[in-house]
Amino acid sequence: MDLFGQRNEPIATGAMILRGFALDLGLVADVGQVSDAAPFRHFQTPGGRQIGVEMTNCGALGWVSDRRGYRYEPHDPLTDRPWPRMPQAFRELARDAAARAGFADFAPDACLINRYVPGIKMGLHQDRDEGDMGAPIVSVSLGLPATFQFGGTDRRDPVVRHPLDHGDVVVWGGPARLAWHGVLTLKDGAHPETGRARINLTFRKAA
């Protein structure tokens, strides 16, 4: 741990939690500016089920889901306008976190922003819709604490639970790039910056 309360916590080969890495960066205000231009919404799965987590995007590409499947699109389907530009603070954080975890020169072109409210979870899944599997995933937690689940690349591998607090960043890539992961049901509470919500920024190299 350093003087700012940060510490690196390896959780698998190619995966690390950077405790407190994203504190005091003004990220919640940036999220508000993005969601003003591209509001949070519930996407649907290809099977027609509503996804519980509210989502929006910023960057050159945005992750979307509907009856046509999971994919990245350059335009917001609600407005048919390009997704908002990725804030510079987002880009720098993603690059610096990836480098700290051993992945140099990470240049994300997509940031999926998830908003959880109490009672909502994210089931175990793999991030496999991206065109560049050589780039890592950088995931930033803001607001209410959550329990992150991280397993192996085989669905049958053991899954370990990791508590995440405001400002924690998880990075995974290399042999862990296709690890199964998810978030347990969010517990009720309130955070001074996000209220009764958890915000998750997920940076990816989609193209």
Rank of each mutant, 00 (worst) to 15 (best):
D2C: 06
F4D: 00
F4A: 05
R7N: 11
E9T: 13
E9L: 15
A12Y: 03
T13G: 14
A15N: 04
M16I: 15
L18D: 09
R19F: 08
L23C: 12
D24C: 02
L25F: 13
G26W: 04
A29E: 13
V31P: 04
G32C: 13
G32N: 15
S35C: 15
D36M: 13
D36E: 14
A37D: 12
A38P: 01
A38L: 00
F40G: 01
H42C: 01
G47F: 04
G47N: 04
G47M: 05
G48I: 02
Q50T: 14
Q50M: 11
I51K: 08
I51V: 13
G52E: 11
E54V: 07
M55N: 11
M55V: 15
T56D: 03
T56W: 00
N57M: 06
N57S: 06
C58G: 02
G59M: 05
A60S: 11
L61V: 06
G62L: 00
W63R: 03
V64H: 04
V64M: 02
S65W: 02
S65D: 06
R67W: 09
R68S: 14
Y70L: 11
Y70V: 09
R71H: 05
H75W: 12
P77M: 04
L78V: 13
R81I: 08
W83V: 03
R85P: 10
M86Y: 07
M86I: 11
P87I: 02
A89G: 07
F90I: 00
F90T: 00
E92I: 10
L93V: 02
L93K: 03
A94S: 10
A94Q: 08
A94H: 06
D96C: 07
D96G: 07
A97R: 03
A97V: 06
R100G: 03
G102E: 10
G102S: 09
P108L: 01
D109K: 00
D109A: 00
A110V: 03
L112M: 05
L112R: 01
I113V: 05
R115S: 06
Y116Q: 07
P118W: 05
K121L: 08
K121F: 11
M122G: 10
L124S: 06
H125D: 06
Q126V: 13
D127C: 00
R128I: 11
R128E: 14
G131I: 00
D132A: 11
D132C: 10
G134I: 05
P136N: 03
S139I: 01
S139K: 02
S141W: 05
L142T: 06
L144M: 01
P145I: 00
F148L: 13
Q149K: 13
F150S: 08
T153G: 10
D154K: 15
R155F: 09
R156Y: 09
R156A: 13
R156W: 09
D157P: 08
V160D: 10
P163A: 12
D165W: 12
H166G: 05
G167C: 01
G167A: 04
D168V: 03
D168C: 02
V169L: 05
W172Q: 05
W172F: 13
G173M: 08
G174S: 12
G174R: 12
R177A: 07
R177Y: 02
A179D: 08
H181P: 01
T185R: 15
K187Q: 15
K187G: 15
D188F: 14
G189V: 03
G195E: 09
G195V: 10
I199K: 12
I199R: 14
I199L: 15
N200F: 00
F203L: 06
K205S: 14
A206R: 02
